[in-house]
Each structure stands twice: as C-alpha cells, then as structure tokens.
Design a protein around this nucleic acid. Structure first.
Lengths: 209, 209, 209, 209
DNA sequence: CATGAATGAGCATTCATTCAT
DNA sequence: AATGAATGAATGCTCATTCAT
C-alpha cells in the first residue's frame, strides 16, 4: 500500500479523481474528502500532493482544456477529406451526452474566469485553440477548392465554436437541446459556411466506407 | 400589524442586494454577510426574510431571468419595422460590457442546472422564451415579406440565442471577444438568416427618425 | 443564556479565561477549546469575540502588563514613608507563589519578544515602567533625605527590576529560589542601595501600626 | 554493521540542526521539517534518530546548558588573577549579542520548567552550577585576600546570576538594555560585592599583557 | 541506514442558522 | 420587525508519526 509510486503518476491519479469528484459534486461544493474518496485515498494524501486545493483545481482545468483540445485534434486527424475533418471536429466538440466528463468539467469552471484573470487567460487560450482549429480546416478546404466560404474563415470559425459551446452547455444541463439537434444545427451552419452539404458526411470515427 | 407591502418591499430589497453581492463575490463564494452588507442590513435580517439561503438564490435567479427577458421584449417593442426589432433583440441580448449585472448573474448560475432539475427547468424556460422571441420576429418578418428566411425560423432563432449566450459569456469573462465583435457576428448571422442587411440598421434605442 | 451582554464585558470575560487557560496549558499549547472551557463558552463564541487567536493573545499580554504595573503602583501608594513604599514595590513585584497568575502569564510570553517586534515594544514598555517606578521612589527618598543612594538611581532601579524578574522566574518555575529568599535578597540589595535597612520594614499591605 | 560512532555523530548533527532551527523559528513553532532543513536531511531521518520529538528537545536543552556552563568555566580558566576571572565569568555569562545562539536557546526553553518537573530540574541544575561558579570565585578571592566581600558569597553569587539572566534576556529580546550597559551594571555590582574595581579589568579574552 | 509516501488526529477558522430581546 | 449574540457543524490545512522499500 505504501509502495512509493511515481510522484507524477500519483498526482495524475489525484487530478483524475478530482475530475470525477468535481463533475459529481460541482466545483462549488466539492470537498477534499470527495476527491479522496474518488481516488481511494485519505484526505491527507490529497493535500500531500496538492498543498492548496486551488492549485489542484487549476491543474484539473488546464489538463481538461488540453485533453479537450488534443482529443479533438486527434479526431480530426483520423480523416483525410476536408468535409469529414470538419464534421469530425464538430462531433468531437459536442458532449457525447449529459455526462460527458470533460465537457461538464469545463462548464463547471466557467464562472471562475470573470473573477480570476489567470483563469480567464486559460479560458481564452482554449477558445483560441478551438477557433484556430476550425479556421485552419476552413482555410485548407477553401485553398484546395473543397469549400466555398460564405463568410471569412475567422468569423465562421468563431461562430462554430460559439454554437458548440452554447449547445454543449444545454446538453450537459439537460435543458432544451438534444445532442442530435445540436449536431444537426452545427452541421447545417457549417454547410452554409462551406457550401458543402456536411449533413450527409458519415458520422463514423473514420472515413472507411 | 404585519404590512405585507413592507414585507414584499423588503424582500425585493434583499434580492437586489443579493444580485449585487453574487456578481461581486461569485455565487460559489458569496456569504450572507456579503448580502447583508450590500443591503445595509444585519446578517440576521437577511435570514429573517429568507429562512433558507437557497430560497433566496432561487428567487434571485428567477427575477434575473424574468428581468432579462422582459427588458429585452421591451427593447424590441420600441421599434416598428422588422429589421430594427431584430437588431434591437440582438443588442438587448448581449451584455452591455464585462460588468453587465444581469448577464453576469445568469452566467454565475449556469453550473447549477446540471445538478438541480428545478433550476434546469428555469434555465430551459429562459432559453425557450429567448428562442421564441427570435422565432416570432423572424416569422413575422417573413410573413410580411420583410425577411426571406435562409433556414427554418426555429433553427435560426435557436442559433441566434446560442451565439449570444456564447459571445455574452466571453464578454463578461473578458476573454477573446469584444462587445463590438460579438454584435457584428450576430448581426451578420441574422442578416444571412433574413436576407436583409441588418448591419446598417440603426443601433439607437428606438426608430425615431 | 443568549442574553446579549455588554460586548466589552464579554471580551473581558474571554481574556480572563484566556489568562487562566494560558497559565494552565502554556502559551505554546493552549487551544481555543481550552479557553472556551475556561470561559464556559463554546469555541465558536471565543472566535466570535476574537477573530484571530493571536489578537486575543496580544490583548491578554497587554492587559497583564498593565495590571501588573497598576497593581504595583497601587500597592506603593498605600504607604507614606519612603522605605515602606520601596518594600511594598518589591513585594508587589515578586510572584506571591509558584501559581501567581499574572507573573506566570508574563513569563509565558517571554520568548515572543525576540521574534515579534511589536511584542518586544510591549515588553520594553513594561520594563521601563517598572524601572521608572523604582527610580522615582529612590529619587524621592533621596531628595527628602530618607535615602542615601550608593549608586545612581537609574542603575539601581534597573538592577532591582532585573533581580525581581530573574527571581520571579525561579519562583514560578519552582527551581532553586523560594519567595522568602528572593524577597530577602531584593530587600538586602535595596538596603545597600538606599543606606536604609529595609529588612525591618513591615511586610504588611499598609503602614497602619 | 551498526557503527555506534556514526550513530552518535549523526545524532549530534541533528541536535546542532535543532539548535539552529529552534532559535530561528522558536521552540513553540519549530517543526520537524525545519530541523530537517537545517540538517540537510529528510524529515523522516530526523525522527529516525529521535523517535519522539520531545526527546530531541530535551537533549538540545541539556546540551545547551552544558555547553553554556563549560564554555564559561573554560573562559574563567584562561585567567589567573581573581578579578580577571570574575570579569571573565561575567563576560561569558552575557549574550554576545541579540543572536547569541546558546543564550537565545536557553530563553526559548524558559516557559517549559513550570509545567515539566524534569525540565525544572535541568533548569535548577544550570542555575546552581552558575551560582556555584560565582560563589567559588568569590570565596577564593576572599580567602586569598583579593576580595573583601560586602555580603555573603552565596547571596552575591545568586544575585550575579540573576542579573545576568535578566539582562541577558533583554539583550536577546532587543528591548531596553544594550550589552554594554548590562556588562557595566554587572561589573559595578561585582565591584561593590568584592570591594575591587572590576570595571578597569581588561575585557580581553585572556590576561596576556 | 535513510527516505519520503501516506496517514489521520488535531486545530483554527468560517459561516449558516437559531433565538432572546 | 429587526438585530446580533451565540453556537456548532463543516472543512481545509498542518504536521508528527509510521512504515515499506
């Protein structure tokens, strides 16, 4: 039990537990005890790895933002044609369902940005990365003649991110919008933007027929 | 002896103070003391009017959602032609700036919906009211030949709400998007939707020539 | 029980309890719970009156230093002739026994001065007041011909304070010196200083025959 | 396998580190981590050598008291004439300055004696050794006609120790008394005691002309 | 021999809530 | 109606101590 494991591994174990605990209890109410329970540790061990609870939260957010972005970039890379890439980006940007851990997590942190400039910087970084991803896809498709852009790539990209942020929230909050609707709305907007009917593009993980 | 009018007035005074206190300290960290300070009362008096702190928060959210919606409906009514109405709706839907009290307040409550079904219902109600407002404007404009809709009114309306929710968040969080950009993106999307160039519509509070 | 008493009175009640608790458990080990127990309060009430435990300690020390000084000045005033005043000063400066609350208290705080400049200032103030008390007694006796000083009043006064500080410590620490010995040593030193045999002066609280 | 010499050396290394750490942080606040840092060890290693923290403190105090006494006895031995010995004893009894490690250390422990009989015994032992040192010096000087004692050697010796304890405290606490003043007061008192003007005796470390 | 990972008891502090006035 | 004194539960954090390696 007390076998000295790799410090980094243990810290990663704690952040993973914190992720689950925050999604379960909410960032505003999660206690060290909840994280310890999720990690199968004693509360003392959690503070042993993260002296200040807030440092842990910060780490969790950074990790989540990175994971969200790279997971999405990875999903895009699985495809070769421009339309499929774009559709894959949309699919990877929306929560899989109301319990999508990463998305729920990001929404839990959303009120922090207004009061904490350092958090606002992280949030902006995530937004910019998402927007650039779309922008590159649009530009690439346009350059190669696959897309005919109805509006500047930057603006379209930002709108796509905004739409998925907003619809993603409603999916995790279980309010009005279903994942299917959200996906349809986004694909339709992307279709308008690119001049290509993306609603017919396969939703599968890859392009294989 | 008990004058219900005073009671109501005092309760309204408390919710107004709570609004300010939540925006200032954040919903996750605001204390009864903060609300009492904002109201110029003692903490005991706050609990005297709202036995359970959570009842107060619920009330604050309901009020805020109502105010947001009616303020917007009112802004729309100041105009007569369809394009101006639509532009006014967009203007009234975006935060005036990073410190827009009502908008900040609504974003503070956003993580609650996922965990509290009663709150999710309120959030859904707000979303639906906003969407219907846009939908009615689009339908009315379409019916009277002012607009030529590029997509179904319901879908366009939902997209407009989504865009303003997302861009509104970035404005209050002081991340990437400025109020001017957000407004431009929304007007451009609305223009595409309606076939009318809304970017030239006056931004003034009313239509008076 | 919840009768709202005078705030100042309650704070004084807390400091009195803290005094007892510190003497009983030691400044280094006393807990809020100990103070609350001594005061017949809940721990929450102690922190209600003193937000920071350290503020309470500071207050306790200031009070103790003041009490020590004024109690002594008062004892001196009960006498009229110079020799009796001096003897009374000595008597009031030494602990009554190993459990003398005020003296024990002052010794508990002694290590603080080295690390806390603000505490050092208080300690210096106490020392100076004690030295001045002796100095005035010596000067007054000398001026009126009652004493023939063997050394400058300032130096003699400081030595008297030093002797009583050191012997007082040994009395409270129950080490080598008894109250009787300490008193005898101090009176003998004062006799040498003044040229008057103070060992024969009554030890009674006042001069009444 | 177990080399007791290394053990002893390491334990001495720990006590030396503890000495520094206690002076730096105060006995009431020093943590094992502080001692480990001062020793260049891990906290676990400190407890490896001293299973109970309190045993370490006890050891530190005993060492400090012994060092203080022997250092002083050694200083006295460097001199041959009685007056110089006495002056050397006084010099070695006062802190060199506000940061004199050994003296600071002894004052840090002073509140412990009242609550711990075992510590009181150590404190008494130190006091007695100091007093006997002075007493022997006075008696020897008196026996050989160098001193003419104004009061019994025992009493004078105790007063000298008391004065240096008290003034030493004020020096380390940086309150009212400077090292120079303290030295002058003690030498003047010793002069009165012995009938010899010690203020003219060299302050040098030894008698060499 | 030495380490540092892991623990859990201990504690100050915060704060919603109660209630006598 | 309104207050603020008093409480005690909740909780983050500290830190001595244990122990596997």
């Amino acid at each position: 039990m007390a076998r000295p494991k790799d410090q980094d591994q243990q810290r990663a174990h704690v952040t993973a537990a914190a992720r689950r605990a925050i999604v379960k209890h909410g960032l505003a109410h999660v206690r060290i005890r909840d994280i310890a329970d999720a990690a199968g540790m004693s509360p003392g061990t959690v503070t042993y790895y993260y002296r200040q609870l807030d440092d842990l939260f910060q780490q969790v957010y950074e990790d989540a933002a990175d994971r969200f972005h790279y997971q999405r970039a990875h999903a895009v890379e699985q495809h070769v044609d421009h339309a499929s890439k774009l559709a894959a980006a949309i699919d990877a940007g929306l929560p899989r369902g109301a319990d999508d851990e990463l998305c729920c997590l990001l929404y839990e942190f959303s009120p922090r940005a207004r009061r904490r400039p350092d958090h606002a910087a992280l949030r902006r970084s995530l937004y910019d990365r998402q927007a650039h991803l779309y922008e590159h896809l649009l530009d690439a498709g346009s350059d190669e003649g696959a897309f005919t852009l109805a509006l500047p790539a930057t603006e379209a990209a930002r709108n796509l991110v905004a739409l998925e942020d907003a619809y993603g929230y409603h999916i995790t909050a279980r309010t009005s919008v279903t994942p299917g609707q959200a996906r349809a709305y986004l694909l339709r907007y992307a279709s308008h933007t690119t001049g290509v009917d993306l609603t017919r593009v396969t939703t599968a993980q890859n392009d294989s027929p």
